[in-house]
Design a protein around this nucleic acid. Structure first.
Lengths: 198, 198
DNA sequence: AATTAACTGACGACCGTTCGTGAGTCGAAG
DNA sequence: CTTCGACTCACGAACGGTCGTCAGTTAATT
């Protein structure tokens, strides 16, 4: 019960202020307890952090899976575009993702290995899902003659670019980047770039 | 003399551990002095940080300018590709850029406004330079019928995507992203996508 | 009676910062 | 050539705070 509230508060501050910039008293205050009481649920700051990290990883992979399941009937073009839209709305509404991002880029140094393992697991999962998407599209003759692995890499790069814009300009600024980048990307991969509507 | 060494050391730690994760004693130790001596040159941690930030901003803009000047005779395709290569080699060899990046993404909260001003200045300069590049290319009929502003945005997004990969996978991982992303990007903007060799 | 979760109190370590001091440099005055 | 004062730079000592952590206690629940 209270452990969940602690993890929520911790995630919020870790996401907005980083690991070093967040103190246990700050977390405790937000929950409404004293900082020493955190030790009733976690063995220390690192333990709390790693549990938050673990929760977030599972959440992220789960989100991605259900999202792709829902889009299985759509066209590739629509699926990809929806993934971009989804990225932005998730960033706007979920602290999970902000936390996940920040720790992907700049984890606390003394926990680097553990964080990296989690990231690697997530990235591999993500890559696998996208790859199957593009393989199918190539079989359906939708795409230019490219290796599906390369298209996957480029699409993830596009998502990363939008993500960066989210981090440092928020949703309104990311919006300005999406359309130009998306159009050029789609032009770059689609066999017929015009007149197939979205 | 010693102020320069302090700023160098500070930049290194700010870049690798963030503002909150860096202590003055750590910086002093690297220089070979005591932390109190830093106050002979700077009025405090914030002052030191802001001076490092300022140096870095100037360096970044200067670098970009000279780089573009050197490339003025090359074709657009080669120019853009060289800018990507340059991004990676600069990341590999210069601490300036690592510092700059980290503080762009996650500045210390109480200095947010000042950092943001610097970033805005840099981004505006960058956008201006790229824009003139693409405007000229459109006049030369090299590109598809797109607004130069949109191409600029998409190219900066591409650079950002590569930058992200640099941050969290280093140069070797970024290399894997560059070629697929670059080819698709160029296919997406160039009027004739084949046979103009680079 | 046993377990749990919150509390109070205190710990040493480190943080950024201030103050006063002393050693070194340099140019001008004697 | 020496002496003096001003200036620069690094120092030790110490400040009030905050950090993460540990130990022991209390009150409520099972």
């Amino acid at each position: 019960m209270s452990a969940e509230k602690i993890k929520e508060a911790a995630m919020h501050y870790f996401a907005t202020q980083g690991y070093e910039g967040t103190s246990l008293s700050q977390i405790a205050e937000k929950v409404g307890i004293k900082k020493q009481s955190i030790y009733s649920h976690f063995s220390g700051k690192d333990d709390l952090f790693l549990q938050v990290l673990d929760n977030t990883l599972q959440q992220e992979i789960h989100d991605l899976n259900t999202k792709l399941k829902h889009l299985r009937t759509s066209s590739l073009k629509e699926t990809l575009y929806q993934l971009i839209e989804d990225l932005m709305s998730r960033y706007e509404h979920s602290e999970h993702m902000k936390f996940w991002l920040r720790m992907s880029y700049y984890p606390p140094m003394h926990l680097y290995e553990k964080v990296n393992d989690a990231i690697y697991q997530h990235d591999a999962e993500e890559r696998k899902l996208f790859l199957s998407l593009f393989k199918k599209a190539i079989d359906d003759n939708v795409l230019k003659n490219r290796k599906p692995e390369h298209v996957t890499i480029a699409f993830i790069a596009l998502l990363n670019a939008i993500t960066v814009e989210l981090v440092y300009g928020g949703v309104e600024r990311a919006r300005e980047v999406v359309n130009p980048s998306w159009e050029i990307f789609w032009d770059g991969i689609a066999r017929y770039s015009e007149g197939d509507g979205i």
